[in-house]
């Protein structure tokens, strides 16, 4: 399978300040990628390199086997960036109709509006739309060129819960159609929900590239709590346990290897009550990792 994006030893700097260092990356068709990182980690610069707005300083970077920003790459890319285009004196349908003429294989604006439940907003001026409605129009604008690769930057900001759910359902449907999606968001539960692979950027380097399961396997701490009459010392030596504490009658074990610790707890199960296991979310892992780095 021909990768859509291929980066080998890519770096970028502003003068003496290195922003991206030795980026290696392969993204295949049909993948949903969550690109995450703290502010200043290099996400903006990486996105700019991929969109062809800026040029790399060294290394090898291709999109659709072409230099980013080339005609073929532009034809195949749709982007939903942070600006929402509240253009004065223009309606939703007029914006999408104009936008469609900029792409050789564009979708029909009316059909796209129907698919995205925007038909009732079609004749509304952009400046009269709410933030969430504008975001949905920006999504339509990203899709109008029928792109193979979609960049979504903080896509659901301002959307209500229903709109968010519809939005993510649509993103999953795009994956079924073989589209590749790169999502940048600070709202990690959304990334957790849809991303096939997570790219964690820290200080200009990827400190993790892989699936959420791999990330959890590698970094996740598990908290197991229960009530018991057994002494705390019973649990301190169990495999993977890093801390044991007791609040009132509830014992809480923190483990860096949940599977191992649970296996070690099996002999004591008859003496444990109200057992709960909490796995850490992507957001919690993100905080741990970016603190460590």
């Amino acid at each position: 399978m021909q990768p859509i994006i291929q980066a080998e030893h890519v770096s970028f700097s502003y003068g003496e300040q290195a922003i991206l260092k030795d980026i290696n990356l392969t993204i295949n068709p049909g993948e949903i990628i969550g690109l995450i990182g703290k502010n200043g980690a290099g996400k903006t610069t990486l996105l700019n390199l991929l969109l062809g707005v800026r040029a790399k300083k060294s290394g090898h970077l291709t999109l659709f086997d072409q230099v980013p920003g080339g005609p073929l790459a532009k034809r195949n890319i749709g982007s939903m960036l942070q600006g929402d285009l509240p253009i004065r004196g223009i309606t939703v349908v007029e914006l999408l109709t104009m936008a469609a003429t900029h792409y050789p294989t564009a979708l029909q604006p009316k059909q796209l509006m129907a698919d995205l439940a925007l038909t009732e907003l079609a004749q509304r001026q952009l400046t009269t739309l709410s933030g969430g409605q504008l975001r949905r129009v920006t999504f339509a604008l990203a899709l109008i060129g029928n792109p193979k690769l979609l960049f979504l930057d903080e896509p659901t900001v301002g959307m209500d819960t229903n709109a968010q759910q519809a939005f993510w359902a649509r993103v999953k449907a795009l994956k079924e159609l073989g589209k590749t999606v790169i999502i940048t968001s600070h709202y990690l539960p959304e990334i957790e929900q849809v991303a096939d692979r997570i790219l964690l950027l820290q200080d200009g380097r990827f400190i993790f590239q892989g699936t959420l399961a791999e990330l959890q396997q590698q970094y996740q701490q598990v908290e197991i709590s229960f009530q018991t009459s057994l002494a705390l010392t019973t649990f301190e030596a169990l495999g993977g346990v890093t801390a044991v504490s007791q609040v009132n009658q509830v014992v809480q074990i923190t483990s860096t290897d949940g599977d191992r610790t649970l296996q070690a707890l099996v002999p004591y199960l008859s003496q444990l009550r109200q057992v709960t296991i909490n796995r850490e979310s992507l957001a919690t892992i993100f905080v741990h990792l970016t603190k460590e780095a």
């Binding site: 062809g52 034809r75 960036l81």
Partner: peptide, 8 residues
């Protein structure tokens, strides 16, 4: 910016 990222 949107225009900049389109083929035209």
């Amino acid at each position: 910016q949107w225009y900049q990222l389109t083929p035209l």
